[in-house]
Every structure is written in C-alpha cells, then in structure tokens.
Amino acid sequence: MTRVSVFAPVRWAKTVPPILRSDGQPDQTAHYVLLALATWANADGTGARPSVRQLAQATYSDTTTVERALDRIQAAGLISKTCDLNGTSVWTLHLTVVHDGPTITDRRIERRRATDAERQRRRRARRAGQVGRHAVGERDVTPSDTVTAPVDNPVDNPDVTQSHTVTYPVGHGVPPRDVTGSDTVTSRTQDRDTRRSEVVYQPLLTSHLNQPITLSPDAARREDFDEFWSIYPRKVGKTAARKAWDRALRDATPEAILTGAARFAAQRAGQDPKFTPHPATWLNAGRWDDEDTPGLRAVSGGYRPWANPANHDAYDEELL
C-alpha cells in the first residue's frame, strides 16, 4: 500500500493534548503511535490504513504494545475505527480535538522559566551585596546621624595618636580612608620605618664574570665545524660535510682534523678547485691523516711531465 504523507494531521498530532498515564505522566508510547498513524491519514484526517506491523516498525515497538496504545488513543477520543478492509483497520483522526489550556510541556516550560528567573534574582542580589561591602572596605557599616572621630583627650603615652574630631553629614557612609587627623606618627608607622632602615642590601656578586665561559658540546662542535669550513679550500655540500664532520669526530679530535685540513688547503693552493674533493668526501675518507706530499717540480728546460712539449719535433728524435 502506498503511504500518503500530509502535514496537517502530523501538526495536529504534535499539538493535541497528551494522554496521561495513571501516575499523571504523559503516555509517550501512545504519542509516538499517534504521530506514526497521522502520516498515513488524508488531509482531513480520514483514511489512515496502516497495519499494526507497519506502526510497530515506525515506532520501534512490538505489535502488542501498538495495539494497546491504539486502544488508549481511541478511549481518549482522538481517533475512531471506521471499518476493516481486508483485515486492516481504517482509522479517522479527530482533528477538531485541540487543547484549550496549557499542556504538561507548557507547565514544564513555565516552571523552568520561573526557576531561571529566581536564580537570576539571587545572583543580582549577591552582586549588589558584594558591591556594598567593597564600598565600605569589606565591612557592613550602618551610617548614623553623624560619624565622629575620637575626642581630643591629651595623654602622656607617646604611642597614642592625638586625634581631632571630624563630623560627616547624614547619608554618607564611612569613607575608605582614615578619618583621624593625626598630629604625630603612630608607633606602627615608626616600627615599619625602623624595619625598613634595618634592611641590608647585598652588593651584586661579580666573581662569576671573571670565570671562563664553557660552551656546551653541541655549541663547541658547531664552532669547530665552522672553523673547518673556513679552512677547507672547496666549499660545497655544507649539510653533508656537517654530517661527515660529526662522524669523523668519533675517530679523531677536532684539532687533528683542522690541522690536516689546513695542510691540505696549502697543498691545493693555486690549483684547479674542480679536482679538489668535496669536504664530505675528504672527511669520510679520513684524509686528515694523509702525509704532506710536496708539489711537483719542473725539470730542466722548463718541461713538465704532465704537459705536451711546445715543440712537437721532439717526438721525431731517434730513440737511443
């Protein structure tokens, strides 16, 4: 059977007065069954013909629960059975039944609003009380007709402050400052000044400034590598050279590597740099241990064994 979906019966099922259980709470099962039944009704509420099994599937209930809910809804006067068609009941929804007063949901909303309003009122009252206490120095002071400081009454005790009479008009609370005009410094002030005078300020110790600065192992390794980089005659592949430097330090000291690099740089001075190995290659091969090889010297006649002679007639000479 094709299921017809309309909105008027569904809106009515949502706003209809709920069916109450014996304990006075809404019958939620009956409400869900009524909503599901409304989706099969026509616009005027007639012709709702779902099977009990279909209602059970729509409400995630069993067939017995749905049948009992239909009986309670029918007893409340919200629906009536029109006829049975091929073993399936045809229902009519009484859309004219509407609630004429606040529902249980409305009453719950009203109670929640009243609770929130009371909570807000108490919060405002607490804030007002805190503001009042701050205004008088965290104390509740009730202003009288006048606020009078101690009367002038000279005494011989030097620790007692001699005061003048100060009168404030009605309606003003005690100000947040001392209302006594003192002629002498109180003993409490004297004690505070005495304690301040006893404070001894220690000079800043500067002995540590003359101590040598010790670098961390990582900082010392970086500084040694920077010195090697400045000495080596070919500066390519710095990242690879830094990694090779760290590996080389496992077998040699920085001083030995730097000495070998300086010796190698002197050997390669004035020569084509493209034949100079990369720094990483030099370090990975342990070349800092190479012996000092003197440069090739020219033989008599200016002839160099690695260069062709200027006069090719030399090749025509008879060999002895």
Results as ranks from 00 to 15, higher is better:
residue 101 G to Y: 04
residue 298 A to W: 02
residue 288 W to M: 01
residue 271 Q to Y: 08
residue 248 A to H: 11
residue 310 A to R: 09
residue 103 T to M: 07
residue 217 P to N: 07
residue 253 T to S: 15
residue 222 R to A: 13
residue 47 G to D: 13
residue 41 A to F: 09
residue 313 D to A: 10
residue 207 S to Q: 07
residue 211 Q to D: 15
residue 262 A to Y: 00
residue 80 S to E: 15
residue 159 D to L: 05
residue 254 P to S: 02
residue 141 V to N: 10
residue 299 V to M: 14
residue 39 T to Y: 12
residue 99 H to E: 03
residue 8 A to Y: 04
residue 58 A to F: 05
residue 318 E to S: 06
residue 199 V to G: 02
residue 310 A to Y: 04
residue 72 R to E: 12
residue 68 R to W: 11
residue 23 D to C: 07
residue 185 V to T: 10
residue 79 I to T: 14
residue 33 V to D: 09
residue 290 D to Q: 05
residue 37 L to D: 04
residue 6 V to K: 15
residue 81 K to T: 09
residue 36 A to T: 07
residue 53 R to Y: 13
residue 120 Q to N: 10
residue 195 R to W: 07
residue 122 R to E: 13
residue 276 T to G: 02
residue 276 T to H: 03
residue 18 P to Y: 02
residue 22 S to A: 15
residue 236 V to K: 08
residue 65 T to Y: 05
residue 240 A to M: 09
residue 226 D to Y: 01
residue 305 P to S: 10
residue 140 D to R: 13
residue 91 W to L: 01
residue 8 A to W: 03
residue 267 Q to K: 08
residue 317 E to Q: 13
residue 61 S to K: 10
residue 100 D to K: 14
residue 265 A to H: 03
residue 81 K to A: 04
residue 7 F to T: 09
residue 37 L to K: 14
residue 24 G to Q: 09
residue 280 A to W: 03
residue 304 R to W: 10
residue 141 V to T: 10
residue 264 F to M: 06
residue 139 R to Y: 00
residue 165 T to F: 00
residue 316 D to N: 05
residue 180 T to H: 14
residue 105 T to C: 01
residue 211 Q to E: 14
residue 270 G to E: 02
residue 317 E to S: 08
residue 136 V to S: 10
residue 115 T to S: 09
residue 318 E to A: 07
residue 59 T to V: 07
residue 284 N to A: 09
residue 132 G to L: 12
residue 1 M to R: 13
residue 297 R to F: 01
residue 61 S to Q: 15
residue 73 I to T: 04
residue 45 G to H: 14
residue 164 H to P: 00
residue 153 N to E: 10
residue 139 R to S: 00
residue 180 T to S: 05
residue 260 G to K: 08
residue 281 T to A: 10
residue 293 T to H: 11
residue 53 R to H: 08
residue 221 R to N: 11
residue 46 T to W: 01
residue 294 P to I: 03
residue 5 S to G: 06
residue 107 R to E: 11
residue 145 D to G: 08
residue 213 I to E: 05
residue 135 A to N: 12
residue 309 P to T: 09
residue 135 A to H: 05
residue 107 R to N: 05
residue 58 A to S: 14
residue 116 D to S: 14
residue 219 A to R: 12
residue 234 R to W: 00
